[in-house]
Nucleic acid binder design. Structure first.
Lengths: 115, 115
DNA sequence: GTGATAGTTAGGCACATGCTTAACCAATCG
DNA sequence: CGATTGGTTAAGCATGTGCCTAACTATCAC
């Protein structure tokens, strides 16, 4: 749990690129090799490798090499902190919204005690 | 819904920075002025302005100026597409997991028809 | 062995990002 | 009015990002 912020940095950043999201989408469907990932991407293999490293570094993708083929698989757990962060924000602003609602409700009761 | 990808780019990128996340966290609690946002951030005001523009551009924050004070407020709806994207990925890999499970289940039934 | 295949490393270029300081504008205060 | 406060703009710099090509390594097929 320590240095959570750096992990959020890496994960949000990893997903802030359409090519990397496409790779994650592809891997959500099934594991794939590096060339599989590269084929639909209209960019050189080294570029794909770099994106892959970003994803791996963020913990979003796990890879292992057997023979001369590297197989990539998604690592779903890495998305949990993102969801947790977003959920925490929603909790905060909903709490604020509730507070406003009950404040307005209180005003209304004051102005109209018989309601 | 068109060019959804560019919006995901901007939103993920906006959140991939601790200062910007801190601003969003602050604003999830209550609206604030630019100086309010800057105070805890140990960086110059122009730097804060730039971060604020990134957040505004991603639709995460809305601001309006009255007199010489700019007030910033969070715009919760901008997070929905992120959650939708993450949920879609989970749906995909869970489906894959279910398929694997039923495949293994089928194998087991084949090997042990009386079970 | 030869050659093809899958991936990797190195170097470099163009542009984006994150920050700074200095100068500036505009609303308010006294 | 002049001074202060809150914010904005401009310019510049250091570093990071995303891509490329060229060269290389390691496996596999024959």
């Amino acid at each position: 749990m320590l240095n959570q912020s750096a992990h959020l940095d890496r994960t949000f950043h990893a997903l802030a690129d359409p090519a990397r999201r496409a790779m994650v989408e592809r891997l959500s469907h099934s594991p794939a090799t590096v060339s599989d990932l590269a084929r639909p991407l209209s960019m050189s293999l080294p570029a794909v490798l770099q994106h892959l490293m970003v994803l791996e570094n963020a913990g979003l993708v796990a890879t292992r090499k057997q023979g001369r083929v590297r197989t990539c698989e998604i690592a779903p757990a890495a998305l949990a902190p993102l969801e947790a962060w977003i959920a925490a924000r929603r909790a905060e602003w909903e709490q604020r919204f509730d507070a406003l609602a009950s404040y307005l409700d209180g005003l209304q009761r004051q102005g109209d005690p018989d309601a």
